[in-house]
């Protein structure tokens, strides 16, 4: 029952795809619109909310982010900003993409924004060959097709090799 969660000292349990359980305070979970909607609509009657798409390592990161943002008062914006940039610093691309997927699934807008920004910053100002290497994008253009696409958007490639 939803009421049992509220009685249970305002905590709920989330279960990752690899079976690990996380006990989370309700106000932290509310950073996620998905969880918020589940709590609002009483469909979280189960004691444990399974998150079949998110592994434990990613979920731990997500909850760390949520806790910081739930606990900080709105006047500490500067502190949150530095937390955000520190949070993603040195994170490998695999973890970052997992974070994007998790933030998107759990509907945590702030986290999705900063993770997507980090990917965008990685793409920015780099030659496309390098971008392909970093993200393992396979070039399926023939050389002629690639030249045609460049020609199509020639204004954007001015001064670029």
């Amino acid at each position: 029952m939803a009421s049992s969660i509220e009685n249970n000292n305002e905590k709920l349990t989330l279960k990752s795809s690899d079976g690990e359980e996380f006990l989370v305070e309700k106000h932290v979970a509310l950073q996620s619109t998905l969880l918020q909607n589940m709590l609002d609509s009483d469909c979280s009657s189960a004691d444990v909310i399974p998150l079949p798409k998110i592994d434990a390592r990613t979920l731990a990161l997500v909850l760390g982010y949520c806790k910081k943002h739930a606990d900080a008062s709105s006047s500490k914006q500067g502190e949150l900003n530095s937390f955000d940039s520190e949070f993603l610093k040195d994170m490998d691309m695999g973890a970052l993409f997992n974070l994007v997927l998790a933030a998107n699934f759990m509907e945590i807008k702030g986290l999705l924004d900063i993770a997507a920004q980090k990917i965008a910053d990685t793409i920015k100002d780099k030659p496309h060959q390098e971008v392909r290497e970093i993200f393992h994008v396979e070039n399926d253009y023939t050389p002629e097709e690639e030249a045609a696409v460049r020609e199509e958007n020639r204004w954007a490639f001015e001064g670029f090799p």
Binding site: A116, H128, V137
Partner: peptide, 30 residues
């Protein structure tokens, strides 16, 4: 390919954070 995990709508979120000219340059990736 890491972007193979992302739907087009998620990639568009990333592209929309790039300057317009940089966004256009992604056309040549694949």
């Amino acid at each position: 390919d890491m972007f193979s995990y992302l739907k087009d709508t998620l990639i568009l979120i990333v592209i929309s954070l790039l300057p317009f000219k940089e966004a256009a340059k992604t056309s040549v990736l694949s």
